[in-house]
Design a protein around this nucleic acid. Structure first.
Length: 221
DNA sequence: GCGACAG
DNA sequence: ATCTTGTCGC
C-alpha cells in the first residue's frame, strides 16, 4: 500500500508534542469502518545491534478464522530513543516501511501499545491510524496512564480505565487467570468494538493472534 | 520536588 | 525492547 509522509521524524521533544496535539484532533473514537471485517493485521517491533537497528513485522490475517494471508518485514536505523509517551516516534517509521510492502490492506490493525490511553490521548495506535487512515486498536501489555478497579479472573471480564476523570480505555482479561491487556481506541474504532475484536482475536493465548504471528515472524532470524 | 513511566 | 534456564502450575 502507498504511504504518504505527513511529517518529519527527526524531532525535538517539544516538536513531537506539537505534532501529537495537532494530529490528535484528527482521531476518531467512534466506529467508522466497513463491515464485515475481512482482514485484521498485527505489528511487532524488535531491535538489533544494540538497538541501532529497528525491525518491524506485519502480519495480515483473515477474519474471523485468523489464517495468515500475508506478512512483511522491514529494517531501518533507529533514530528516536524510547521515552514513555513518545513510543510512536521510535517505532512507526519502520512500521510504515513494512506496511508499504503489503498488498492486502487490513480492515483493522491491532497495535502493540496504547491508543488514546495516553497522557495527550495520542498513543501509537492513534498515530498509526491517523497516518495511514486505517482503523486501529491499542493493545498494550502494561499500563501507561490511568487507574482501574480490580477485575475478575475470568476471560472476557473488563473494567474501565480512568484518567483525569474520563474513560480512556479498558483493562481486559483475554485469558482466565492471566495478566490483563490494556485496550483503547486507536482510530475509527470505539472502545466496546475494540474489546470485541480483541477478544475475537485471542482464541487461545493472552496476546492477539495477529501480534503473535508477527512476533514469530520477526524472531525467526 | 518526588514518583510513574506503552515498547 | 533486550539479556537468559529451568521451573512451577493449570
Amino acid at each position: 500500500m502507498k504511504i504518504y509522509q505527513r511529517h518529519a521524524w527527526q524531532l525535538t521533544l517539544s516538536e513531537a508534542i506539537a505534532i501529537q496535539e495537532q494530529l490528535q484532533a484528527e482521531v476518531i473514537t467512534e466506529d467508522k469502518f466497513k463491515e464485515p471485517v475481512q482482514y485484521v493485521a498485527g505489528v511487532d517491533m524488535g531491535f538489533e545491534a544494540d538497538g541501532t537497528i529497528s525491525r518491524a513485522a506485519v502480519a495480515v490475517l483473515s477474519f474471523p478464522d485468523l489464517q495468515v494471508i500475508e506478512t512483511s518485514l522491514a529494517y531501518r536505523p533507529t533514530t528516536f530513543p524510547y521515552i514513555p509517551g513518545f513510543l510512536s516516534f521510535r517505532e512507526i517509521p519502520a512500521v510504515l516501511d513494512a506496511l508499504e510492502k503489503i498488498t492486502t490492506i487490513p480492515d483493522i490493525i491491532l497495535c502493540d501499545g496504547q491508543g488514546i490511553a495516553h497522557p495527550r490521548r495520542f498513543g501509537i495506535a492513534c498515530h498509526l491510524g491517523v497516518l495511514v487512515d486505517i482503523p486501529t486498536i491499542g493493545v498494550a501489555k502494561s499500563l501507561l496512564v490511568g487507574k482501574h478497579e480490580i477485575l475478575p479472573e475470568t476471560r472476557g471480564s473488563w473494567q474501565p480505565l480512568i484518567h483525569k476523570g474520563e474513560t480512556i480505555g479498558a483493562v481486559l482479561r483475554s485469558r482466565t487467570k492471566v495478566k490483563p491487556l490494556y485496550i483503547s481506541s486507536g482510530h475509527r474504532v470505539s472502545l466496546p468494538t475494540a474489546i470485541d475484536y480483541v477478544l475475537r482475536c485471542t482464541p487461545k493465548y493472552r496476546l492477539p493472534e495477529t501480534t503473535r504471528i508477527a512476533d514469530k515472524l520477526a524472531s525467526n532470524r
